[in-house]
Structure formats: C-alpha cells, structure tokens
Design a protein around this nucleic acid. Structure first.
Length: 106
DNA sequence: CCCCTGACTAGAA
DNA sequence: TTTCTAGCCAGGG
C-alpha cells in the first residue's frame, strides 16, 4: 500500500473546482477508513500543493485556523455556505456536481 | 511498547 | 444552536 500521506495527497489532488469532500471520505478513498483525524493532521502540516480547502468536516464545518481563507476559496469555486458558516450539505440553488459524504466514484 | 496530539465523527446534553 | 464525551487512526517522542 502506498504511504498514508501519498494516498491522501492523491485523493485530495483529485478533487476538482467546486468539489468538496469530508475528511472521512478522503480517508476512506485513500484506503484508510476511519482515519479522518489523521487526514486533517496531514493536511495541516503538509506543504504539498494540494487543494486542502476542498476538504471539510462531515458536518460542513471549516478548518479552525484558516476557516476564513478556506471559505473565501470555496465560494470562489461556487460552493454555497449556510448562515452558520458551514458548507451547504448538498442542495444548492445552482445544483451541480458537488461532492459530499455519499458518492465516492470518480 | 507506551503516551500524547489533532484541520475527525457521531451522539448526547 | 453550541459544548462535551467517547471512539478511531496515523505520526512522533
């Protein structure tokens, strides 16, 4: 199996503009189901050119420490936010190919 | 091998 | 809505 970090980096790098995945989704997709915390820990300390802002908590919460920047980047890609400052679960006015804790194909 | 940290998650208060 | 608790996992000391 590939290294944990490499696998995670690959999955995150595979996310396209407007696509949002949860830490748990990324972990599972990388081949480490349940390692959501490890994913977050990796994304916070990595310097690799991965779109970390496209990875949020399963509840739609943003990263504590870069929430402002993360939200700004996501909105720039068309991601809709709630009044609570959380990512819209799925239904969006423009309804498009978002990604959420459900599908994992691709 | 043991212990601790953390951008997690689900559920209970 | 927010805060806490317990469970999970990979990494590092």
């Amino acid at each position: 199996m590939v290294g944990f970090e490499s696998a995670v980096a690959a999955v995150v790098a595979a996310l396209g503009p407007g696509e949002v995945a949860s830490y748990g989704e990324v972990a599972a997709e990388a081949g480490y189901p349940g390692a959501a915390r490890a994913v977050g820990n990796f994304l916070r300390r990595t310097t690799e050119p991965v779109p970390w802002w496209r990875v949020v908590a399963a509840s739609g919460r943003l990263a504590p420490g870069a929430a402002a920047e993360q939200r700004r980047r996501l909105e720039a890609e068309g991601v809709v936010f709630t009044e609570s400052g959380r990512v819209a679960p799925r239904a969006t006015p423009t309804a498009r190919g978002d990604r959420w804790p459900t599908a994992s194909g691709n």
